[in-house]
Design a protein around this nucleic acid. Structure first.
Lengths: 231, 231
DNA sequence: CTGTATCCGTGTTGATACTG
DNA sequence: CAGTATCAACACGGATACAG
């Protein structure tokens, strides 16, 4: 009716290259970050807003419609008594995890990364999956819980790989609690876990030895110089 | 770095996530495709225009400046007698190949891909690297040349991997000539090479057996349904 | 409370024309 | 060939109003 039901972008690239097609799907402002927020499972409208600092409601609505139109996500109404609408990636939408993580891993090599900016729970959990150093995880199998504000996530480390999900972990070996940004100094900055606990940044329950080791399994990629040369 | 470089985009995401940073770098219209055009080596202003159907000169200028500022590319003046300005990716810029290819591979699963759109020489050559099916290349070592309009590219297939570059190949086993879009039916659509030759779409020189086998080593990813479900 | 639709100020984009 | 200048159209984000 508003004649503004353009799929993803009104301006298109006239280019048969897959990269051009991909940028039509996810190149609009907010689209890729919105997909990131859905990568760990369905979310409601306002949960998405909360994870996307600064997006306005009308833009979020447009993006959801556009991504739905091209088959990246779908809207679903949960059965009564919940009877609430959620947005969920399609199978193909979930496959975009590789794209999101490849982009993030590449971008993090830039010296202009600012870790003091807001950091959503989903970003933190995905970053663990992305930045695990497999060799450091040798021989460690563990189930970990994360309490990030109101949200709970689980992780299972097995065979040098980390599987993550939203929701309660089953009999976790250790549970971390704190706000996402407070994990960064410990998991990526080399701060000893005990120090973060003493400072009240993080709380740990369960097996502290497992928790301490788990917190050392991750590393940011090496920075490049400001001129793009390897460090 | 708390001083943000807003020259890439006046609007930034207030988000510490690497994906958000990445979208600030390459999320603006044309940026990622511009990087794609540089992935096979330095290019001049008008060569870039030619590979980016529809970009206007002022936007290309802005994008080049923005990408230079954040360290993805640099401008260089070739020594006399050429004495001409070229744009070239930095080492970090070249690392974005993984991002570009991951995006393209994911997007190509969409049924809305239209292979009849314009197709740049760089896109074709990168697509070969991206869509090689390693098992099909077992035991085949060969040097291949590509003449795409005025441009010449080389490829070296070795150990089930394809290395590509812009410029003359050294003693190629076979050379293909034709416009990029005419390669698609043969390399990705199953059309026999001989038929494309007979139709005048492609020309082949050198070892025709190697050329014929080479043309069968590639495959588009499986399509998903329009609703994002696996095919 | 959970979304959706409309208006509006502002900044970005892109076509055309133009200059060194 | 390699860009710059101008300007109209459009997208963004905020506010607000509306609907279940």
């Amino acid at each position: 009716m508003t004649e503004r039901d353009k799929s993803v972008s009104k301006r298109w690239y006239d280019d048969a290259c897959g990269a051009a097609l991909g940028m039509e799907f996810v190149g609009e402002r907010w689209s890729l970050l919105l997909m990131r927020e859905l990568l760990l499972g369905p979310r409601r409208f306002n949960e998405l807003r909360a994870g996307l600092p600064g997006i306005s409601a009308n833009v979020l609505t447009q993006r959801l419609a556009g991504l739905e139109r091209v088959g990246i996500l779908l809207r679903r109404r949960l059965p009564s008594p919940a009877n609430v609408q959620v947005y969920e990636l399609t199978a193909w939408g979930y496959e975009s995890e590789e794209v999101v993580l490849a982009l993030a891993r590449w971008a993090l090599r830039s010296p202009s990364h600012d870790p003091t900016l807001p950091f959503s729970p989903v970003s933190l959990i995905l970053s663990l999956r992305m930045l695990l150093v497999p060799e450091r995880a040798d021989g460690l199998h563990a189930t970990i819980g994360f309490r990030l504000g109101e949200e709970v996530y689980g992780g299972r480390l097995e065979d040098r790989a980390l599987r993550v999900w939203r929701g309660e972990p089953d009999r976790p070996d250790a549970v971390f609690a704190g706000q996402p940004s407070h994990f960064l100094p410990v998991f990526y900055g080399g701060m000893p876990l005990a120090q973060a606990e003493a400072a009240g940044m993080l709380q740990v329950e369960g097996d502290r030895a497992v928790a301490a080791r788990f917190s050392t399994l991750f590393a940011l990629p090496d920075k490049v110089a400001a001129d793009g040369a390897p460090a």
